[in-house]
C-alpha cells in the first residue's frame, strides 16, 4: 500500500507545482489546494498505514487492545486540513477581489510591486 501511496503523492506534488508555475491565478490557487492536500497525504503515509484497526478503546478497557493505527498523524492531518481550509477560503476571496481590481487572470500583469 505504501509504494502506491508514495507514487500517488509524488504525482500530486508534481501536478501542484506545475499548476503553481502557470500564469493564471485560478490555476495558482488550484495548485495551492493540491499541494496542501499532497502534504497531508504525505504526513499520513510517512507515519505508517494500517487498515481496519482504529485506535479506539473498547468498553471497560483502559488501553486499546492489540496493534492499532497511530492516532497522532490523524490528529495532525485533521489540524492541517482545517488550516488548509482556512487558507483556501482566504485565497479564493483574495483572487476574487484581485480579479475585480486588476481585471485579468494573469500574473504577468501584476508586476507593479516587483523590483
Amino acid at each position: 500500500m505504501e509504494p502506491l501511496m508514495a507514487i500517488a503523492i509524488g504525482i500530486a506534488y508534481a501536478t501542484a507545482i506545475y499548476m503553481m508555475l502557470r500564469r493564471s491565478i485560478v490555476k495558482l490557487v488550484i495548485g495551492i489546494l493540491l499541494i496542501s492536500n499532497a502534504a497531508n497525504l504525505l504526513v499520513f503515509t510517512a507515519a505508517g498505514l494500517k487498515r481496519g484497526a482504529p485506535p479506539l478503546i473498547p468498553e471497560g478497557a483502559s488501553a486499546p487492545i492489540g496493534d492499532v493505527a497511530d492516532p497522532l498523524p490523524q490528529a495532525l492531518v485533521l489540524t492541517a486540513i482545517v488550516i488548509a481550509f482556512g487558507v483556501l477560503t482566504f485565497s479564493v476571496v483574495l483572487i476574487r477581489r484581485a480579479y475585480l481590481i486588476v481585471k485579468a487572470d494573469d500574473l504577468d500583469q501584476m508586476k507593479d510591486t516587483d523590483t
Binding site: 477560503t89 479564493v92 476571496v93 476574487r96 477581489r97 475585480l100
Partner: peptide, 17 residues
C-alpha cells in the same frame, strides 16, 4: 461564523457586481 462570513460575503460581492 467564519465559513458563513466567507460564503455570504462572496455571494453579496457577486450580487453587487
Amino acid at each position: 461564523g467564519s465559513v458563513l462570513t466567507a460564503v455570504i460575503t462572496l455571494t453579496e460581492l457577486d450580487q453587487a457586481e
